[in-house]
């Protein structure tokens, strides 16, 4: 039922645009008592415990997209910080697999130089990417309805809808989303479902020399990930990042007792941030916060985009 102000050639891309628009008007008015200005949105400090619910659309807008397809699979991750030795193979495999532009990262491993109990030095390496939250705040915040659950509950972006609002980036508690400089669209880990469907591992998992990354179907109790999860849980070695935000991430981190997530959590990017290229700088290895305050993100001092898309 096209509304008055919609042109005759209703392009298939926005078949549901009508319904969405109605909801959007309602939703935003309700949320912030009027038009939320861009400045106000940007200036919100990232909440310590909660999520950016101020950015969320009404539930009717995202409920369907938050529901994973009925394929019986539940894809998840186990990241073992005790095994990772920070070789960056996963990050570059991902760059290669997805032709990620310089200055941006779908996957980034954060280094955390610290002390051991006996005073000697240690380096903890933390592979980061989208946590594929079951209760994904990015899906809730997306005004265009581009973010949704794909195979196995993978949180993915529809590129026929995404128009680069970056509300998802503002809402992501893990800084896992970047806005592609040419496409002006949100990009994040998509679980390499194009590989998984061809019976391949995600690009990062396949290459990790340390077997620090495990991906698989948690609904399959015989899968490597299920068995590993059970084993690590019984060891008491598993935890989740920023669990207090309760986004129910489908990623579990195996950490050592001496270097739990709490010891490096403050270094991880959060709401409104993307993986910063200067995170790799040696000058960041001993820092306790992400580089965003210290160094402008290179993408933001870019002046004039000139080239065409990919």
């Amino acid at each position: 039922m096209p509304e008055d102000n919609k042109p005759d050639e209703a392009e298939p891309d926005h078949a549901d645009a009508v319904d969405r628009r109605r909801f959007l008007k309602t939703g935003l008015a309700a949320a912030a008592g009027g038009l939320a200005s861009a400045d106000a949105v940007a200036q919100q400090p990232p909440p310590a415990d909660g999520v950016r619910s101020d950015l969320f659309m009404p539930e009717e807008h995202w409920r369907e997209r938050m529901t994973a397809p009925d394929d019986g699979k539940a894809y998840g991750w186990i990241v073992d910080t005790r095994k990772c030795f920070g070789c960056h193979a996963c990050e570059v495999a991902c760059k290669s697999e997805n032709d990620v532009p310089l200055g941006n990262f779908i996957r980034q491993t954060i280094y955390h130089d610290t002390q051991r109990a006996n005073g000697s030095q240690a380096r903890i390496m933390v592979p980061m990417s989208c946590q594929h939250c079951e209760d994904a705040p990015c899906i809730k915040a997306c005004p265009c309805g581009a973010l949704h659950k794909g195979a196995g509950g993978s949180v993915q972006v529809s590129y026929d809808k995404c128009s680069g609002h970056a509300s998802c980036k503002d809402a992501c508690p893990y800084g896992a989303i970047y806005i592609d400089p040419v496409a002006n669209q949100a990009v994040k880990c998509h679980n390499c479902t194009h590989r998984v469907d061809e019976h391949m591992d995600p690009a990062c998992v396949a290459t990790c020399p340390s077997d620090a990354l495990t991906f698989g179907d948690l609904n399959d109790h015989d899968s490597k990930i299920s068995r590993m999860k059970a084993e690590l849980e019984s060891e008491g070695a598993l935890e989740q990042l920023r669990a207090q935000k309760d986004t129910k991430p489908r990623a579990w981190y195996a950490t050592s007792a001496d270097h739990p997530a709490a010891s490096f959590e403050s270094k991880l990017p959060g709401e409104g941030q993307s993986y910063h290229p200067d995170a790799y700088s040696v000058y960041e290895w001993q820092q306790t916060t992400p580089p965003h305050d210290r160094v402008p993100h290179p993408g933001e001092s870019n002046d004039d985009p000139e080239t065409e898309g990919r």
């Binding site: 891309d13 926005h14 969405r20 628009r21 590129y159 128009s163 680069g164 496409a183 065409e308 990919r310």
Partner: peptide, 8 residues
């Protein structure tokens, strides 16, 4: 809601 741009 604007459409994705030409570089999408």
């Amino acid at each position: 809601c604007p459409l994705p741009g030409p570089g999408r």
